[in-house]
C-alpha cells in the first residue's frame, strides 16, 4: 500500500512538472503572451471572457495558479478556430485514439508474446536467424512509412480498405456507440490498427524472447525439470509466467507511449484522434487546442505509467509481499 501511494505521488508530481513546463513553454513562444490565448478570430465578448478566466492581465505567477485551477476543473479555454471549448473537442476525439491504441496494442502483444516465446523455443534455428533481424527492421521503420506502404498496397492498389478517415461520407448514426460498433467504423479502423500493430509487435516479441531465454536458464526451471514435469508445464507455468512480468508492464507503458506516437499514424490515415488534432492545432497556431491535446496525451502517459507500476506490484510477489523472517 505504501508503495502504491509512493508510485502515485511520483507520477502525479511528474504530471505536475509536465503541466508546468507546458505553461511556460506556451508563454515563451514567439508573440505576445496574450496571443497565446486570445486572438482576433474571437469576438470581443469571448476575448473579455478569456482575459478574465485566465487572468491574462495579471503577473505570470498568478496566471500559473489560475491555469492550474482551471485545469483541475477541466477548463482549457476556447479553440481559436473551432470557437468551442477545448475540453469538448478533446473528449470528442479521445475515444477514437483510445480505440486505435488499445486494439493495435492488444493485437501486437498477443502476437508478440506468442511469437517471442516460440522464437525462444526455436533458438539457434534458421527461423530465428531470419526472424530476429526482420523484427528489428519493423522496429526500425518509421511508423508512418509502414502506413504509407500498407495504404498504397492494400487500399489504393488492392482496394480492400478505405484510404482514410473514420467513417464513410453520408452515413448517420443515432449514437456514438452505434457508430463505433458499426462495420463501417471497423473497416476504417483496420488498416491503421494493422500498421500500428506491425510497428508495435517488435517490442513484446523481442522482450518475451530474451526473457524466455533468460528464464529458461534459471535454477527453478531446471528444478521443474528435475521434478519430472511435462515440457508444457515447465514452459507455460514456470518459464512463461515469469518471463511475462516485464511484458505486462511494457504493455501498460506502451499504451501511454503509443498515444504520443499515434500522432503520425493518425495523420497518415486521417484518423480523427488526439494526435492528428495536435498536429492540426500546431500547424494553424491554435495554442489552446495544441496545449490541451498535448496535456491530454501527457495525462494518459502519466496514468499509464502509474498503471504499469501498479501491475508490477500486483504481479510480482517479490514486490507486493515484503520480506518476512
Amino acid at each position: 500500500m505504501r508503495l502504491v501511494v509512493e508510485r502515485f505521488t511520483h507520477n502525479a508530481l511528474a504530471l505536475l512538472a509536465v503541466t508546468t513546463i507546458l505553461f511556460f513553454m506556451f508563454r515563451l513562444m514567439p508573440g505576445t503572451p496574450l496571443a497565446a490565448f486570445i486572438n482576433e478570430n474571437l469576438n470581443a465578448d469571448q476575448q473579455q471572457q478569456m482575459l478574465e478566466q485566465f487572468g491574462l492581465d495579471r503577473p505570470m505567477w498568478q496566471q500559473y495558479f489560475i491555469y492550474l485551477a482551471n485545469l483541475l476543473q477541466g477548463e482549457m479555454g476556447l479553440s481559436f478556430f473551432q470557437r468551442r471549448p477545448v475540453t469538448t473537442i478533446l473528449l470528442e476525439v479521445l475515444p477514437n485514439s483510445v480505440i486505435l491504441t488499445l486494439s493495435s496494442l492488444v493485437i501486437a502483444y498477443v502476437f508478440g508474446v506468442l511469437a517471442g516465446a516460440w522464437l525462444a523455443w526455436k533458438r539457434g534455428s534458421w527461423i530465428e536467424r531470419v526472424a530476429v533481424p526482420a523484427v528489428l527492421a519493423t522496429r526500425a521503420a518509421p511508423e508512418f512509412w509502414i502506413g504509407m506502404v500498407l495504404l498504397s498496397l492494400l487500399s489504393f492498389n488492392a482496394g480492400w480498405f478505405p484510404s482514410g478517415g473514420a467513417s464513410s461520407p453520408g452515413l448517420a448514426y443515432t449514437s456514438n456507440w452505434q457508430r463505433m460498433l458499426s462495420w463501417d467504423y471497423i473497416h476504417h479502423l483496420a488498416l491503421p490498427v494493422l500498421t500500428l500493430a506491425l510497428y508495435l509487435q517488435g517490442l513484446p516479441l523481442l522482450l518475451m524472447r530474451s526473457n524466455m531465454l533468460e528464464v529458461m536458464h534459471e535454477e527453478f526451471v531446471t528444478m521443474a525439470r528435475m521434478k519430472g514435469f511435462s515440457e508444457w508445464r515447465i514452459v507455460i507455468h514456470h518459464a512463461a509466467r515469469n518471463a511475462l512480468l516485464p511484458v505486462v508492464t511494457a504493455f501498460a507503458l506502451g499504451v501511454g507511449l503509443s498515444m504520443g506516437g499515434n500522432v503520425v499514424i493518425e495523420t497518415v490515415f486521417s484518423w480523427p484522434g488526439i494526435g492528428r488534432l495536435l498536429v492540426q492545432a500546431v500547424s494553424v497556431h491554435d495554442y489552446p487546442l495544441a496545449q490541451g491535446a498535448f496535456l491530454m496525451i501527457a495525462m494518459v502517459l502519466a496514468l499509464m505509467n502509474f498503471v504499469a507500476d501498479l501491475l508490477y506490484i500486483v504481479l510480482d510477489p517479490r514486490v507486493s509481499h515484503g520480506r518476512r523472517g
Partner: peptide
C-alpha cells in the same frame, strides 16, 4: 517419485511467483 533433489540455493530453485 524415486529420486529427489535438494538444491544448494533454495532461493533460486523455487519459482518466485
Amino acid at each position: 517419485r524415486d529420486i529427489a533433489y535438494v538444491p544448494q540455493s533454495a532461493m533460486s530453485s523455487l519459482d518466485p511467483v
